[in-house]
């Protein structure tokens, strides 16, 4: 079964720093745009919801048509040198109901993201351009979603 999934990492100022279409469904441009629109709109809900729970995985928080938005919120990253506090959110738009898989996916991506953050050359809050990260994320998506 072809699945649709769009994964996006949103950082400071609600700016996406990583985005990828990880679904197996054939890609259409307007669909990809719609995915981004849905995820962008879901940020409103995330920003309220994130503070109501101590869990990182917020499960499905929003949906539009058949597409469900699941969100994973990382701990706030504070950089006292750069005077930054970065509140990173992983957002996955999907049409599958595999809750456990999604949770595992988020956790593994979180590890990858921490590795990125540990890179001294990576400015927290800037775009993730590592192709290695991209490959790994896609592999995880294949594995869990």
């Amino acid at each position: 079964m072809a699945t649709t999934a769009c994964f996006i990492i949103v950082s400071r100022n609600d700016i996406p720093i990583y985005e990828s279409e990880v679904g197996t469904a054939t890609k259409r441009e307007d669909a990809a745009q719609l995915h981004q629109f849905i995820l962008h709109a879901a940020l409103d809900i995330v920003q309220d919801l994130a503070w109501t729970t101590s869990a990182m995985y917020l499960k499905s928080i929003d949906r539009f048509n058949d597409l469900v938005v699941s969100v994973y919120v990382t701990a706030v990253y504070c950089d006292i040198f750069l005077d930054l506090s970065i509140h990173t959110r992983f957002m996955l738009l999907h049409d599958s109901r595999n809750d456990d898989g999604i949770k595992s996916f988020f956790q593994e991506v979180h590890e990858l993201y921490i590795k990125i953050l540990l890179n001294p050359l990576y400015l927290p809050g800037s775009r993730i351009t590592s192709s290695h990260f991209d490959t790994k994320v896609r592999a995880l998506a294949r594995k869990y979603l």
Partner: peptide, 16 residues
């Protein structure tokens, strides 16, 4: 309704 709730992005989504 989303707009009056303060969810500007949601409102924008449906406006679109």
């Amino acid at each position: 309704l989303y707009g009056s709730l303060g969810y500007q992005r949601k409102a924008a989504f449906f406006t679109r």
